[in-house]
Every structure is written in C-alpha cells, then in structure tokens.
Simulated scan of single mutants.
Amino acid sequence: MTSSQHHRIDYVEIPAADLEASKRFYAEAFGWEFNDYGPDYAGIRGPGDREAGGLTPHGPQHRGGGPLVLLFSADLDASVAAVEKAGGRVLQGPYAFPGGRRFHFADPAGNELGVWAES
C-alpha cells in the first residue's frame, strides 16, 4: 500500500450521473472495485490497490469541467495560504468530510482542484 505524500496527486473524482451504470462500466472495462458510501458516492479501488478515486453524481458537471483532482496535504491550512499566495482562488472550504478536511481552489487558468488532509 502506498502512503499519501504532501502535494502529490492523491485522489480523482469522476462525475457519474448514474452511479450504478458507471460502477458497472468501470468494473467491466478496468476491473475496478468500489467502496460504497451510501447512494451518492462510490470509492474507486483497482484490484488490490488502495482507494484512489471516487464516482459521484455531485461532481464536476456542476463546475463545468472534468474530473476533480485532489492533492494530499500534511498541513491543510498552510496549503490554503500557499494557494492564495501563489495566485489561486479558494472556492470552497476548508470543510470537514468523512476522513478529514479539504478545500477546493481555482488555479489562475480557472481549473478547479481540491486538497485534503487527514485532520
């Protein structure tokens, strides 16, 4: 199992208007397995791998983009400050979610990414 590393791409969320149909597709096409977190979220695991992404009907289609890339942070508040200092714009958060805290930001080109931390 690979551990999370500071500011490495860590998790990707893929929009899935029909969660069950998307799970069937990815399971068949790529052998992915899923951790179900209720009716609106399924964590993605490749065979034998740790969870590396998720399928969500509440994802990027509401932001006008593709999958949401999430970076891991050892210090979320420092990452918020670094994003703002570098010219990014915080769009949401920091906020709590099951497993930690995260925030979303827009880079100067308007791409939205997220950053999460365990606490």
Rank of each mutant, 00 (worst) to 15 (best):
I44V: 10
W116F: 14
A106R: 03
P67Y: 02
T2R: 14
R102I: 00
P47T: 09
G110W: 10
G54N: 04
A117N: 00
A27P: 05
V90K: 07
P39E: 13
L68C: 02
A109N: 12
G38E: 05
L19W: 15
L70M: 15
V90D: 09
L91C: 12
P57D: 11
V115T: 02
H104E: 06
W116A: 01
A78G: 03
M1I: 09
M1K: 04
G53T: 07
G38R: 06
R45N: 07
D18L: 13
P94Y: 01
M1V: 10
H58N: 07
P108I: 03
N35Q: 12
R89W: 14
L19V: 15
P98R: 14
K85T: 14
H104Q: 09
L55E: 04
L68T: 07
T2S: 14
Q92W: 13
G31I: 14
R63T: 02
F30C: 10
N35R: 13
V69Q: 08
R24P: 08
V90T: 09
A74C: 05
A29W: 14
R24K: 11
G65F: 07
K23N: 04
R45F: 06
Y26S: 05
S4R: 06
S4D: 05
E13S: 07
D75G: 02
E28K: 00
V90P: 08
S79Q: 05
A52H: 11
S73G: 06
L19Y: 15
I44W: 00
L68H: 01
G110E: 00
V69I: 15
G53A: 03
G46N: 03
L19P: 06
V69M: 11
R50D: 10
A16I: 01
L76K: 02
G87H: 12
L91F: 04
Y11F: 11
G99K: 10
A29K: 08
W32Q: 00
G65Q: 15
R45M: 02
D75E: 11
S22T: 11
H6D: 14
Q92E: 11
E84I: 15
P57G: 08
G31T: 12
W116Q: 01
K85R: 15
A81I: 05
R45C: 08
W116K: 01
G64W: 03
D18P: 12
A86M: 12
G54S: 08
K23W: 09
D77S: 06
P94M: 10
G65L: 10
A27E: 11
G87Q: 08
H6C: 05
F25M: 10
P39H: 03
E84H: 13
V115W: 04
P57N: 09
G64R: 01
Y95W: 07
T56Y: 14
A96L: 11
G64E: 03
G54L: 04
A81H: 02
D40C: 05
E20Q: 15
H7I: 15
